[in-house]
């Protein structure tokens, strides 16, 4: 049985440092998890633009690949992959999809894992805010409380909620493939998210798509407070480094 770290195409291609950080966290918690070569795309981005038959063929291909590698467990670091693998794979494949899929945040938030991580912010007390990505809050098994459990467990870190949070969070405007074609959506909506970042010193997100949009809009608007990927933040805490320093 193989336990797979599912990096996701966007992170793998664009955010290698984050991948390293995610791998570090996962390996710390369970050394049996591994990285494999040529992991196929889950297909999430094609969901609304592919026909059902095309999607089924793709999903079957991916599942056969999983079977060929004897995969029993997956931890995804991408919110989109988590949503897609847990919602649509069982829809297309039924009983034939037997893999236990967790998002990195869910995995970290497990009691024994949190205890093992024993996270402490060695610097000054820090207030942060967390942006709920649609892919996590809308998932079949929503990931909403877990990031809060993790952040609240960190000594010297305090979560300051955005006005719109959990199920009512503002979408960054990048989802559904919109970012690649109509960036104007995130121009407005990602800015709105930053506008709600009042007492938080940084904005955390666990979705690489949200991060991409938020990062661009932050730069465009010369916003001082940083947007940080959840796993990057956690690793800095683990290493005793100031999480706000790039």
């Amino acid at each position: 049985m193989t336990k797979l770290i599912f990096l996701g195409c966007l992170s793998k291609t664009k955010y290698q440092e984050t991948c390293k950080n995610a791998i570090k966290i996962i390996k710390t918690l369970d050394s049996e998890f591994e990285i494999l070569e040529d992991v196929p795309c889950c297909g999430a981005l094609a969901y609304h633009i592919g026909s059902d038959s095309e999607l089924k063929t793709h999903v079957e291909y991916v599942n056969d690949w999983f079977k060929s590698k004897n995969i029993s467990n997956i931890v995804t670091i991408c919110a989109g992959c988590y949503n897609y693998l847990t919602k649509y794979y069982p829809q297309f494949l039924g009983e034939d999809f037997k893999i236990e899929v967790k998002h990195l945040i869910q995995f970290m938030a497990q009691k024994e894992n949190l205890a093992k991580l024993n996270l402490k912010n060695l610097g000054k007390p820090l207030k942060v805010s967390y942006h709920d990505a649609c892919h996590l809050r809308n998932a079949e098994l929503p990931v909403i409380e877990e990031p809060r459990i993790i952040l609240e467990s960190i000594e010297n870190v305090e979560l300051k909620e955005l006005d719109n949070n959990k199920k009512n969070s503002i979408c960054c405007g990048a989802g559904g493939g919109v970012y690649s074609v109509f960036k104007e959506n995130s121009d407005h909506n990602s800015k709105l998210i930053f506008d709600q970042l009042k007492r938080g010193k940084a904005l955390l997100t666990a979705c690489p798509f949200c991060y991409t949009a938020l990062y661009r809009v932050r730069n465009d608007n010369q916003i001082k407070k940083p947007v940080i990927k959840f796993e990057d933040f956690i690793v800095k805490i683990m290493e005793g480094v100031d999480p706000l320093v790039d």
């Binding site: 609304h48 649609c134 809308n138 990048a174 989802g175 493939g177 919109v178 109509f182």
Partner: peptide, 8 residues
């Protein structure tokens, strides 16, 4: 195609 499927 401007819809992000955020499901709000």
């Amino acid at each position: 195609f401007l819809c992000t499927s955020c499901e709000n």
